[in-house]
Amino acid sequence: MSEKNSAVADWLRQHLPKLVLSPSFAITIFFVYGFILYTAFISMTKSKMLPNLSKFVGFENYPKLWKTLNWQVALDNMLVFGFLYIVICGVLGLFLAILLDQKIRGEGFLRTTYLYPMALSFIVTGTAWKWFLNPGLGLEKSMHAWGFESFKFDWLINPDMAIYTIVIAGVWQSSGFVMAMFLAGLRGIDGEQLKAAQLDGASTFQTYWRIIIPQLRAVYLSAFVVLAHMAIKSYDLVVALTGGGPGRATEMPATFMYSYTFTRNQMGIGAASAMIMLMTIAAIIVPYLYAETREKQDG
């Protein structure tokens, strides 16, 4: 008996690490990859309000999705928002990082100030900016009170301009994070290069433009990946700031998915839209992760 016990004990000891890891791994396999497969399957059925696995229709939902006007609006908004969000956050983040790198008194305070919005929920951000840009009671009214009588800011209720309010709120929330990344990158540059540049006669501007900024390539890439990822997923901010409106003017893939799945009883279409979101993100993340881990092996 004791021999058998010790054999079991030995086996346990040998496999203990894997056993410890396995619950998390099993959870990941089931709840991530299993679910992805499930949703993929649903996207190929004619499910309406509830999953209906019997009504298999292959890829029929996808062309249907693409013909849906709301989806086209969502994609348009996605591109507009994504582009502006990434570019403005990137430029602003780099700009602020460079400014903060100039031996500023109170740098810690300023850094904290630029970064704190990241700690907020997108719902809080959306709520705050919704009030701030409130036509009639918000910024517009304040400008009137200060004498700019003709100032108009009704973007929130303007179907053509509403998407840009989301850009503003999004930039406000995330640019501090990009700034932190660039600041870390700037600080990682060999100080002796700056001395060499000084001796070479380069002005501060030239030093940044010709030497420092070109070296931050790794940071651009990381910032792009993170921002793109956040842009594609953005749901909370849209819900809180515009609710997808006015009308459906600020529809995004995430809000589209939610409404078609849970309120419009078009689960099959909703699942298809979720798959599209996944594939878009995967197209960016997977090569990036692959390149990163590859580099570490070589380096």
Partner: peptide, 24 residues
């Protein structure tokens, strides 16, 4: 490495993809 990669990817998925099965 593979196991880690699989778990890591899970951080990046859009959560819309799991809403339907999770509610079930």
């Amino acid at each position: 490495k593979w196991i880690f990669a699989l778990m890591l990817f899970g951080c990046f998925i859009p959560f819309q993809i799991v809403l339907i099965p999770m509610s079930q």
